[in-house]
Nucleic acid binder design. Sequence first.
DNA 1: CGACATTGTTGACCTCGACAACAAACCGCG
DNA 2: CGCGGTTTGTTGTCGAGGTCAACAATGTCG
Lengths: 180, 180
Amino acid sequence: MPAVKRAPKRARPAGKPAKNPAKRPAALPLRKRPLPTRVSPVAIDLGVLNDHLGYFVRRIQVWIFQDFIRHLSPIDISPAQFSVLVIIGANEGLSQSELAATLGIERARMVRMLHLLDRRGLTERLPSSADGRRHALRLTRAGQAQLKQAKALAAQHEASLLPKLGPERYRMMLEALREI
Amino acid sequence: MPAVKRAPKRARPAGKPAKNPAKRPAALPLRKRPLPTRVSPVAIDLGVLNDHLGYFVRRIQVWIFQDFIRHLSPIDISPAQFSVLVIIGANEGLSQSELAATLGIERARMVRMLHLLDRRGLTERLPSSADGRRHALRLTRAGQAQLKQAKALAAQHEASLLPKLGPERYRMMLEALREI
DNA sequence: CGACATTGTTGACCTCGACAACAAACCGCG
DNA sequence: CGCGGTTTGTTGTCGAGGTCAACAATGTCG
């Protein structure tokens, strides 16, 4: 509802009556008069963001994940899925709760992720012998194979980070973060 | 629709016929027989995740953001909103596209964020004097005041990170990330 | 002027985190 | 034993955000 025309001049070209999901023009509510501008293509100042670790961590996290996704696209495994497969592979028989807690994912979210991985035939949920509530998670054969491939691609991704970040910085950060 | 009973034993307590948004029991499709278990509360192995920078960066990013949100909750400003306000404050008159590109946010997304900030009376979009397509963004009085508060709270948040990460590690990471 | 690029905008879809509610199963205790 | 309390897996619903596509209004340039 916000958004008013700046100055509705041109009518409707009426060329095509709007293809399929035709959209309305718009309309934005500008209040004041046509004052300031800013043409200079000068570099934009980050201001106090320069002093916030969170900002940079966020940016690099997004960047790393995009690179990860690109490398793993052949087998269509997301970072989250990769982490789930790795943990299950390294801890056969653990429960969904343990898995979720380990990765900092909501139990509810984990349920749906595992549904998907189950349907893809990568994981399976066996009834726990001791506790009737739990599911003992493990990789199927196919899941193990897929994980193997994923690890190889992930390793490529990881290797590609080194030159981009600088080997020293890379090692430094990995060590520092591991301690926390 | 997956999910089958593990072993439908107890019937329906029939206590309350299901309150308001009553949910169905469930039903999970377990394939095999009641095999493995895992009772030992042994620490869970992260496996190869230990060698992936992205995993740790993600975890710490989430953690930092949660802390940020907690500190800024009194004025209800999200990390993304904070970054938008800071950039506008430090670069009055810039366009939505420039802003979006600077922060790595989609133009479409930025439109809706600014709608919100506009409605909250923190920012305004003036017509650009030179280019009729652009909007010259700036903070309102209220926006400036709000930003000032936000910066103070954000600084507290940032300060609280130091002891938790260790001053050396903190400075190291901030420097390293700034260069990238 | 007409082709092409840019800017702001909307719509639709999808992922993900956060909550709430619930059934089944487990645990402890009188 | 039975009953309250807890844990585990599950579903539903919201809301924030990212991604894509389509457009109208403008600008730009040959």
